[in-house]
């Protein structure tokens, strides 16, 4: 029993460390990238959560895909993801990254309908583009997921 207690508390500490030090690389296209850059900057300061912008994917833990992924940039995104070292996480930002957004639905041939068709996604942030607060909400959600206590929250239903 004591071993179990020890190992769970050590695992908790390690999870805490991983969730509080999410160094990120970011791929940006369009308006989501603008909002993402705002979030990295002074006013919304992602470094509060221990996240630093890294330009070397080998040193990063979190891949923030902001904006559209095209068939042509799919390969580059995959390569970027493969260059990262596990444990690694992916955040999809905005409608285009979530499921292709306005482009995929209108039948554009060159658009990948969602980042999750290329790399596994851990957290989806809705918005077109999402506010910086929404992006930080996504980071917090991811931290909860890493710490293993994410609560599946459903928006309240209107009773009939």
């Amino acid at each position: 029993m004591k071993d179990g207690l020890w190992s769970t508390s050590i695992a908790k500490v390690l999870d805490w460390a991983r969730s509080n030090s999410l160094w990120y690389v970011s791929t940006g296209a369009g308006c989501c990238a603008d909002e993402a850059l705002q979030t990295f900057g002074c006013r919304y300061d992602l470094e509060r959560f221990g996240s630093i912008l890294k330009t070397d994917p080998a040193q990063a833990d979190l891949l923030i895909v902001s904006g559209l992924v095209t068939q042509k940039s799919k390969e580059a995104l995959k390569a970027l993801y493969d260059r990262m070292i596990a444990p690694k996480y992916v955040m999809a930002l905005g409608s285009c990254a979530n499921c292709g957004g306005a482009f995929a639905r209108s039948g554009a041939y060159c658009v990948v309908a969602g980042v999750d068709q290329v790399v596994p996604v851990d957290v989806y942030v809705p918005g077109c583009p999402p506010r910086p607060e929404a992006i930080m909400n996504g980071i917090i959600k991811l931290q909860e997921k890493i710490q293993g206590n994410a609560i599946e929250r459903q928006r309240p239903r209107f009773e009939a």
Partner: peptide
């Protein structure tokens, strides 16, 4: 604006 979810079906609001 707080709507981040861990899976796509969770983003559907009924």
């Amino acid at each position: 604006y707080e709507g981040a979810a861990l899976a796509l079906p969770q983003l559907v609001t009924s």
